[in-house]
Write a protein that binds this DNA or RNA. Structure first.
Lengths: 272, 272
DNA sequence: CGATCGCCAATTCTATAGAATCTTCTTGCC
DNA sequence: GGCAAGAAGATTCTATAGAATTGGCGATCG
């Protein structure tokens, strides 16, 4: 609502991206529900901007895949439930595993050894802190640091895989991932996150060690486990099925017959 | 040029898509070379339309991945040389293998048995025709039929994998693939294609048989081989390196200072 | 009474002009 | 020769208007 407008105090040339991220967040937060029609005028008023960047943001969103653009009929929000996120994660797993497979044997050893060092240094701190209260300031910093290392590891693998296209695809999925991670994050900033971070550190270490050892099979396996584990964790707050759509806006006969899925295949211009 | 403008006699609401396809074709035909800057005004004049649909088409193209959109600096054509196609194929292989892995055990047996039947029926015809002259009308039909079967197989696997997102990603890559297949196609419509088609039939049969047997490992391996084989074939006509790009646009002072890399990391919104 | 046809409002898409901003090239100065 | 200020060019965004399409509404006809 108004929070969206406030976020648009951004640099010139980044307005579309800001709108994209804002809408993305609203979709994952469920404020924009599945099947909902997005009118450009309404969105323009909401964000306090003109039609043009709205339209462009919608096109970009269609490219990402969260909305469907039907010619002459506007944009429709796609469903985003746990199943969808699991689907995205499956694709991400396939791609990240491929990246690891390619990166193995050609990595920057120094960078990864530094990473391994940071990881092992982080581990005992986490072991200590798992017995403390979660609101500790020190813990927050530890989580923050762990997240940084997570980004570092994945970026490093991306840039080491020798395939720019693959790296770009992974980055795109990361945008999606980040959008609903924020949702899960604000859903419960409890000790669950701290426990998960500790788990993650172990998984990261396994990946790094396998990469440094040049053991391709083990590296892929470790990455696969890592992503799978993340998927289980991050989807836990999402509704298993379309949540309150039946109560509020029963315009979609979602479960009535099988036509819905066919339609989305045919007339959608999502990204082609 | 004018051919582009003629194609825009299309229905209202499909202009963007028409522009997208036209630009896509020009990119893969090499008329729009790598690193080239796409000015909206110039494109608008070329197509005889206004800025607005051009901008939107560029955003859509960025979503597909053939151009990079840099804020406040416009669009830049991505390189498409053999290496890039190989990169795309690597991603496609990862995704299609994942699709096969997921599809294995849950396929529509009847549809695949029908497919296997058609494939085995096609095979002897190809064996016969490999000794004939390539201009034979019958051969052309055989190639056409083989292509249809190829599409049928991949679509069937896509729809059987139980992951809509994955299916959509594969479709997107197929768009990219098809665009430069046209290039290779018009480059030589010689008997090479017929030989390749025969090879493909065998590879397809291997995939289908493994799927019907429920042998996941073998199915994935067959698909991997199939894609790899296709990559080798389709990249043979593409230039190994960027041909004349160094002479045309040396405006990129990439190494001036450290800001460039930060910018490209942060701002390139190719597909976010 | 029900169905088909045509018209109208709403929305989308395109065109056009112009202001603001950013990039880049040029020029002048130290 | 290197660097800063300014100008030119391009891009992005705003705003508005008009054309095209869609979907609903009522009227007419069987």
């Amino acid at each position: 609502m108004t929070s969206a407008a406030s976020r648009l105090n951004c640099d010139h040339g980044l307005r579309r991206q800001a709108i994209v991220e804002s809408v993305l967040r609203e979709v994952f937060q469920g404020r924009l529900r599945a099947g909902q029609h997005l009118a450009t005028q309404q969105l323009a008023d909401q964000f306090g901007v003109s039609h043009t960047p709205i339209r462009e943001a919608l096109i970009s969103l269609a490219g990402i895949g969260v909305i469907d653009l039907v010619p002459n009929r506007g944009a429709i929000v796609r469903r985003v439930v746990a199943k969808d996120v699991r689907e995205i994660f499956q694709v991400r797993r396939a791609l990240e595993c491929e990246a690891v497979r390619s990166a193995c044997g050609r990595v920057d050893v120094a960078a990864f050894e530094l990473l391994a060092e940071d990881l092992t240094r982080l581990k005992p701190a986490q072991a200590r802190s798992s017995h403390r209260k979660p609101n500790d300031r020190l813990l927050m910093r530890s989580v923050e640091k762990a997240r940084q290392i997570d980004s570092r590891l994945h970026d490093l693998i991306c840039s080491s895989c020798g395939n720019g296209f693959l790296a770009k695809e992974i980055t795109r999925l990361k945008t999606l991932f980040r959008a609903f991670r924020d949702l899960a994050w604000e859903h419960d900033t409890s000790q669950n996150d701290f426990r998960r971070v500790a788990e993650e550190t172990g998984e990261h270490l396994a990946i790094v060690e396998a990469l440094l050892a040049g053991d391709r099979r083990r590296a892929v396996r470790a990455m696969s486990y890592h992503i799978r584990s993340g998927a289980r964790y991050w989807t836990r707050v999402l509704p298993e099925e379309a949540p309150g759509t039946n109560g509020s806006a029963p315009n979609r006969g979602a479960g009535r017959n099988g036509r819905d899925e066919r339609k989305s295949r045919v007339c959608v211009e999502g990204n082609e």
